[in-house]
Design a protein around this nucleic acid. Structure first.
Lengths: 344, 344
DNA sequence: GCCTGGGCCTAGACCGGTTCACTCGCGGGC
DNA sequence: GCCCGCGAGTGAACCGGTCTAGGCCCAGGC
């Protein structure tokens, strides 16, 4: 055929010329708006295809005043993130919904919440994002004030009591912790410990409280927790500490999968048999829980769906709807090989 | 003070007016270009700070003809990705370099290489990215033709023989595999097996060849491999198969960490003692390898640095330099608790 | 026959930056 | 005294789309 692609970049003007119409018509055709006849529309598409044209996103963003991009900053060292199956799964859930809207995810790893504040301010001021997803809320999270003042459209991942006015999506961790503890108690465990995240991290705090409350209700005393930073190494250290201490627990609940795996390693290293001498319960239930021996019982939830729901709420926010916070399904127990009645 | 931020969005014009200069001067000041005096520059910065202004990125992209964003599409199911510590670490390495250039990473999970081709074409045609990072090359990778024709600036992660003309960054897997096999042979192992990725995946193919060649050289016969899709489950299945088959191997080399962990679980489940009855060698050496009992010996490399180097090469490409492919450090053996001489 | 209305399409303003050609004022050299 | 050059700063074109106001034409109603 003829008309090889022009040497420089091809713009809407070239397409318009090739189809014998004005720029406006091309724009209408490509945005599926009325105002061009079917025949013309076809001609325009043909010309665009022939020239290999697609609308320049910067130009479109400029006049549309929206960039079809949302931001997500993760504030944990990469070494930990890579190990947490949670996030990739969560991200993929987010993306599955974004893709339906031709929207992109801007991902950034940051070192601290202050760094995230700076980043989000830049993203918003420079209009690099239409809105953001905020995760890992802390008690009195420092991001809330600055970002709310900024007017950044955002959705928070975490209990509404933590997200300070940002619409939120959360799992009911308190109920899930209660279920976990009651299950272990029902098996006959009386000395139950918990290896959690840092207490100032919102959901860790909630889980910690729920743990103590449930233990109290069952008349098992406060129960011990150890705080860690979610890393496998610290999970191992915490487990070692618990197993070496007086009043060794017969069951341990972990705040994520990786620490539970590490705990299993420690038990094996110390010659403590799982589940005979020690029951272990993981959290999140990634595939990792099925790879160990024994397999890990876990509090299981649909992380992909969680991410998807978060994205949906963000779109509601962006559409200007007044959205209310909403919970997604509560994690539920998936018993496997690492939990059993304690040895008499 | 006075001058509260204007109700609508604030633009360069507002800042110019507030500082009593022209738009051009503001632009010069903000881009650290000569043409404005120190005093004026200060006044402009003060005004911008007061109004909370930052240059609109869409507008800047439009006139600069660059978007300061690079693309990365990952083509593996999220369920696997989340488990592979490799990618998050790799991404964080990429970002560490991008951040220095005020550049963002556009990340997308795709389902197939064809989907990736479509995506990259869109990204490039719409100028959503200045360039891309291509990973997971296959033999005769279908992305090469279309994307090279497109003129997409990109860097390939993988041996130059795979990346079809895209400048590449790679680790010398062949040498690393040879080291792994020689090490096991030196311990006294004669029946060594390998659990690898799909053979049509470039680096798996290279490792497979190197494995066979090295086994041959050592007079140990071809050696057995099993192909998997990198998932823990398949790693477990492959291990089970090897251990149940005739001529059970005394050592197994895995293509990533997660399969090695799964292999360890299977050994434990089958009552095969590691390392006494079976040696296991992982690949990548994420933190995971230190969490199991016994700890996993692994071929170790600096994944973060790998990602950083890839980003650096991409910037060279974007700067229009004629760059040549380059290797990063070869993975090297990190012996731990999962390898030992075979029981006599 | 005239007016109305709707379908199709165009011209041009506009989004908010960057950049280039140009002006202005001033100091220095001869 | 005149010219040159340079630093500072301006105005307008430009990037490539979207979108609004309006023009033209034809069918239909009274």
């Amino acid at each position: 055929m003829s008309t090889p692609a022009p040497p420089g970049r091809v713009t809407i003007k070239d397409v318009a010329a090739a189809a014998g119409v004005s720029k406006g018509a091309v724009s209408l055709a490509f945005n599926n708006k009325p105002g061009v006849s079917e025949a013309t529309r076809e001609r325009i598409f043909a010309a665009a295809r022939r020239l290999g044209w697609a609308p320049n996103s910067a130009a479109r963003s400029l006049s549309r005043q929206s960039v079809d991009t949302v931001g997500l900053a993760l504030c944990r060292p990469a070494r930990l993130l890579g190990l947490e199956p949670f996030y990739m799964e969560f991200i993929s859930g987010i993306e599955s919904v974004l893709a339906e809207h031709d929207c992109s995810l801007l991902l950034r790893l940051v070192g601290s919440l202050d760094e995230e504040i700076t980043l989000q301010e830049r993203w918003w001021r420079e209009r690099q994002v239409d809105g953001s997803i905020l995760v890992d809320f802390h008690q009195d999270d420092p991001r809330i004030g600055p970002l709310r003042r900024l007017g950044l459209p955002a959705v928070g991942v975490g209990h509404p009591s933590l997200t300070g006015g940002f619409p939120s999506v959360w799992t009911d961790d308190a109920t899930a912790v209660a279920e976990a503890v009651r299950y272990l108690a029902a098996l006959g465990h009386r000395r139950i410990a918990r290896v959690g995240g840092p207490a100032d991290l919102g959901h860790s705090g909630i889980r910690a409280q729920a743990f103590e409350r449930t233990m109290d209700e069952l008349g098992l005393g406060g129960g011990r927790h150890v705080e860690t930073a979610f890393s496998g190494e610290e999970g191992a250290r915490a487990t070692r500490m618990l197993l070496l201490g007086a009043d060794r627990p017969t069951a341990i609940v972990y705040d994520n999968d990786i620490m539970a795996v590490a705990g299993l390693g420690v038990a094996s290293e110390m010659g403590v048999s799982v589940p005979d001498d020690l029951s272990l319960l993981a959290w999140d239930d990634s595939q990792l829980c099925r790879l160990t021996h024994p397999t890990l019982s876990a509090m299981s939830h649909d992380v992909h769906g969680f991410g998807a729901e978060v994205a949906r709420v963000l779109f509601d926010v962006l559409a200007g709807q007044e959205v209310s916070s909403r919970p997604v399904a509560t994690p539920s127990l998936m018993p496997r090989g690492s939990t059993a009645p304690p040895r008499p």
